[in-house]
Every structure is written in structure tokens, then in C-alpha cells.
Amino acid sequence: MKELEALSDFTLHLADSALILGQRNAEWCGHGPILEEDLAMANNSLDLIGQARLLYQQVAEVRGNHCSEDQLAYFRDESAFKNFTLLELPHSTALAPSAKGQRDYAVTVARNFLYSAYMVGIWSSLASSPSLAAFAGAVHEVPLQNAKALQWANLSANLKAVAAKSYKETEYHLRHSSDWVIRMGDGSAESHQRIQQAFHHLMPYTQEFWTQQHPAALQLDMPSIKAQWDVTVSDVLSEATLVVPSAQGFLPTGTRGVHSEHMGFLLSEMQGLARAHPGAVW
């Protein structure tokens, strides 16, 4: 059943994106610019990792064969991850992985803003998707021996539920990051320059939001999601006295499993412990 595979792959992409950004943002844990913000960013990471867990559980269910959320998070290699390249980049505008720049909160805030503005559109579309509701509703009509069709109905129902939960979390991530974009942009000369530079650096990576293929069965209205995203970005950046940089240039390929040079470093840190002690528990 090709559609089941497509929906499961899309769920995996959503999970990978959530996990990788959650891992990145967790780097601030204990290093936040101020105590309150440290907690806020740790909350953000825990929201994202929580979303990733729920989504991985769905994928593991479909894959069967002793697949588990931990296996998907810790025992897959770089090319198996389908997250947006944007989310694996370090918290600095330095491009070379060897040039380990200092973490810059402006990059963190700009990325969280661009991504949460996008995910608000995706989650709300999925949560209110008529096709997902129809697939989920069909669960009682599926003959029990048709395992694939049953999996399809279950995956639809659960994806819809995760979307509704994640939408609320992401709405807050958008509020929190918008607030900081405006404070930094309309703040001191230094903060203005840094947040503007962060947007120049990150904007080309957002192209991947719109070039990605989605499962046809979902009937996601990407043009209207993009139109809403454009409005959010231009409203917040203009209030922040920033210019909206062009999104042109190099086309990132993370959703196809071809990642930036930063991804390997991130994965080795995230997966190292689980791979050194497979099956370890608290």
C-alpha cells in the first residue's frame, strides 16, 4: 500500500524535524542568556521532543518488526533522517563546521520564529484535515483482516490527534520567538544587526518548506499555508524594523536525507550514549 508508506514517511519527516530542533535548542540548557529564558528554551525543547516521540511511535507501529521510537531516534544514520536542513544548523552564522562559532541567541530566535510560523500552518491543517478525519472515521468499516487498511486508519487518527496537541505548543513557540525578534530588531544597534544577520543566514534554508512533496491523500493546501507564512514573517519583521531577506540561492536537501556538514556532529552527540550502551535504561 503505497499511500500508507507515503503517510508514514511524512510522519517520520515531522518527527525528525521536531527531534533535531529539540536537540539543537537543548544545547542552551544551562547556558541560556538569563535564567528565565534558559527555562523557556528547555520547555521549547521538551515540547519538540515530546512531539517527536508521539510521531515516532506511530511510525514504529506501522513498521512493526520490533521497531521502536528509540530505534528510530538513536540507531538510524544520517541519510535516514528527513528533517529540514534549517533545523540542524548550529546556533551561529558561521558556515564551516570546523569554524565553531559562538552560540548566538539571535540565530536561535530567528530559526524558531521561521519554523514555528510554518508549523502553525501545517499542524492546524492536519488537525482540521477533512481527509484525515475521513480516513480515521473509516476505521470501523475496515475488515479486521485488512491489516494495512487498519494501520492507515489508525495512523490518520493518531496523526490528527498529535497535530491538535502540537498546534497549541507551536502557537506558543511562535509567540515567544516573535516577541524576541521584535525586541532584538527594535532594540540596540548590536541586537538589530545580529538578528538581521541571522535572518540573512537562515532565510535561504526556508525554501525547503515549499519544495517538499506531501502525501497527496492529505490534500494540504500549501499555497495558502505559504501565503499565511509570508504575512506572518513580513508583519513581525516590519514591526521589528528588519528587512525580509530573499530566500533565493542554494536549495537545501535535508528532507531527502542529504544533510549539511553539521548534521553528523549533532547526531554523534545525540546518539553516542545510546549506541555505546544499547538497551540501557534509567
Binding site: 528565565e36 529564558e37 523557556a40 525586541r183
Partner: peptide, 15 residues
């Protein structure tokens, strides 16, 4: 600690 009331509310939510 917060710069203004709006930020204080956000931070209170998180803390």
C-alpha cells in the same frame, strides 16, 4: 526579572 509586562507574563508561564 523581565523587561516589561508582556515579557514577564511569557516568562511566568515558562517558569
Amino acid at each position: 526579572h523581565a523587561a516589561d509586562a508582556g515579557q514577564a507574563l511569557n516568562m511566568a508561564r515558562d517558569v
